[in-house]
Design a binder for these strands. Structure first.
Length: 572
RNA sequence: CGGGGUAUAGCUCAGCCUGGUAGAGCGCAGCUUUCGGGAAGCUGAAGUCGGAGGUUCAAAUCCUCUUACCCCGACCA
């Protein structure tokens, strides 16, 4: 491709409404343009990337034995009514009415459609197991679309649905998909981790999310240093303490004045103790609008999901208002402590292990120091309440946890018979008995993968594309080509050699200044760059620089095509 | 949906408080010089100031309504 005939719509300035780096760079590089909230046009440059991701996903799905189909984006309401999701789904489901006043929706997912297809087409157990996938545009009317293509309303997704006679068969296919996903994200050149996920109310046994690791990720995930254990931080169960609590060293507790010291940081600094030595007490709404106190070590954070699962705590978790706290406890947030509280007190495991601790005195501007469980207040009601942190022991007993951030790009889970039961999808088994099918479901956010790849791979200059998904593999930048016929010939010849070899080559034949060319090629993240000028031609050398290299190097003109092809192949 | 904010040239924004001829930088078109890291000069095209209504001799500016978009909260590929 020649830049003179390619819409290279790069922007020097960052558009104002782009918040995360991948969104900014995708706009600046001219990959996407916004049409409306959560709706994006893919420009030629971006589409090349999207297609490469799509093709890798397709190749690996095909290799796994799945069969590709393409279902309509618009779906009739009847099927959704049959699964009861027409009522269950909220405003996220975009509902539309046709000229005959028939109701439809724009599909956010396709369980109903594929299940309907399978119940019509699959006649015998001999046709099972079967796995069908599609790569298709979905629409979810998100409350708040943001981060560009990362959380768009319309997005490209690969969704697959498998059908089984037995639970064992589902487990087998699930495992195949798990491995296929590993292959896909490895081939894409991404650093990722499969993590144990919340199967939620879907009822399946196992569920894994695949996360691309990136500091800007929306999810916190924890993985073990020693084993392959990895889970969403929300999901990590922490063990009850095994050791005995240390003995108190203070003769008794004491009350101290802590004027205007409210947060743990303030109190700890004021009293010259570590936050680990302090306990924080959070007041949330419990059952029947009562209040419940949750106690955590000062340096720990509350896990909202765990707390809400406790029977004494209202779900979803709601913090008590300042007025409610004042009415029941008689002081303000910032001076609350577990002693003499007239409401239930749930204490996180870690907080039960602290001796001689600092906590609020339930009196404005006062804290207690040297407090001990058992001596100064009753033995605590111990529960798991906090988020796992780096350094915590891994739940599988092997190694410790590291917490990092990730972007969810894939999710595999076992659906069971939710849809097949509701939609009466069954076949006869070997004994002639009717068996309701068991289903699995496997998604990859194809368009989100593009954003995640950029989120993970960029620098000050712009995008650094993994070779597998780069829009162009090599860029040829001629310096002042219009002035030298000799240079034109060499460049043209090189360009054609790359094309003949099947390399995605971009020739920058614009009459631009060198700085503009360099900046654009770096911004759009081309992995390999060749610079040709009059001065190198006499020596038969041209200048090469990898996108991440610090320095340039000279390559012999007659070998450059083979060298570059070698680099590309080793990277894919 | 609740809270906050923005809307002026293709992009980034100033002008609004204190009403009086529509602005800058970048980009775009042309010419000249320059030519291996986002060049310089000159010339030019480009805006019914988101929309509607109101106040006023006069509205980008003040008031009311409205639409779109963005940010903060509950979801998910």
């Amino acid at each position: 491709m020649r830049t003179s005939r390619f819409l290279l719509s790069t922007l020097r300035e960052t558009p104002a409404d782009a918040e995360v780096i991948s969104h900014q760079l995708m706009l600046r590089a001219g990959m996407i343009r916004k049409l409306a909230a959560g709706l994006y046009t893919w420009l030629p440059l971006g589409l090349r990337v999207l297609r490469k991701v799509e093709n890798i996903v397709r190749e690996e799905m095909d290799r796994s034995g799945a069969q590709e189909v393409l279902m309509p984006a618009i779906q009739p309401a009847e099927l959704w009514q049959e699964s009861k999701r027409w009522e269950q789904y909220g405003p996220e489901l975009l509902r539309i009415t046709d000229r005959h006043q028939r109701e439809f929706c724009f599909g956010p997912t396709h369980e109903e459609i594929i299940t309907d297809l399978i119940r019509r087409e699959i006649r015998s157990y001999k046709q099972l197991p079967a796995n069908f996938y599609q790569i298709q545009t979905k629409f979810r009317d998100e409350i708040r679309p943001r981060f560009g293509v990362m959380r768009a309303r319309e997005f490209l997704m690969k969704d697959a649905y498998s059908f089984h006679l037995t639970e064992e068969s589902l487990q087998e296919t699930y495992q195949v998909m798990y491995e296929t996903y590993q292959r896909i994200f490895s081939r894409l050149g991404l650093t990722f981790r499969p993590v144990v996920a919340d199967s939620g109310n879907i009822g399946g046994n196992r569920s894994h999310e695949f996360h691309v690791l990136a500091d800007s990720g929306e999810d916190a995930i924890a993985y073990s240093t020693e084993s392959d254990y990895a889970a969403n931080v929300e999901m990590v169960e922490l063990p009850a303490p095994s050791e005995e609590r240390l003995k108190p060293t203070t003769p008794s507790l004491a009350m101290v004045n802590t004027p205007d010291q409210h947060t743990i940081e303030e109190v700890a600094k004021f009293l010259r103790v570590s936050p680990q030595q302090c306990l924080k007490t959070l007041i949330v709404i419990g059952e029947n609008d009562s209040l419940v106190a949750l106690v955590l070590r000062g340096d720990h954070s509350l896990n909202v999901i765990k707390a809400a699962k406790h029977p004494k705590v209202a779900s979803p978790l709601t913090f008590a208002s300042a007025e409610q706290i004042r009415a029941v406890i008689g002081c303000d947030i910032g001076s609350i402590g577990p002693i003499s509280l007239n409401i239930p007190v749930l204490v996180d495991y870690a907080a039960t292990q602290v001796t001689d601790f600092v906590c609020g005195a339930n009196k404005e501007g006062q804290h207690l120091v040297g407090v001990n469980w058992g001596r100064d207040l009753p033995e605590p009601h111990k529960v798991d309440l906090r988020n796992a942190e780096t350094g915590d022991p891994s739940p599988d007993g092997k190694g410790t946890l590291v917490v990092t951030r990730g972007i969810e790009v894939g999710h595999i889970f076992q659906l069971g018979d939710k849809y097949s039961h509701a939609m009466q999808t069954a076949v006869l088994d070997e004994q002639g008995r009717s068996v309701t099918l068991t289903m699995g479901c496997y998604g990859i956010g194809v368009s989100r993968v593009v954003a995640a790849a950029i989120e993970q791979n960029h620098d000050e200059q712009g995008i650094i594309f993994p070779t597998a998904i780069t829009p162009f593999e090599v860029a040829i930048l001629p310096m002042n080509m219009h002035k030298s016929i000799r240079l034109q010939e060499v460049v043209e010849n090189l360009y054609q050699q790359f094309q003949a070899a099947g390399v995605d080559v971009l020739l920058d034949d614009r009459k631009e200044r060198p700085g503009v060319m360099f900046a654009d090629i770096e911004l759009i993240g081309i992995p390999h760059r060749l610079v040709l000028g009059e001065r190198g031609l006499d020596e038969g050398q041209i200048e090469y620089k990898g996108r991440q290299d610090k320095d340039t190097q000279l390559l012999a003109l007659d070998q450059v095509v083979n060298i570059i092809i070698g680099k590309i192949n080793s990277e894919k």
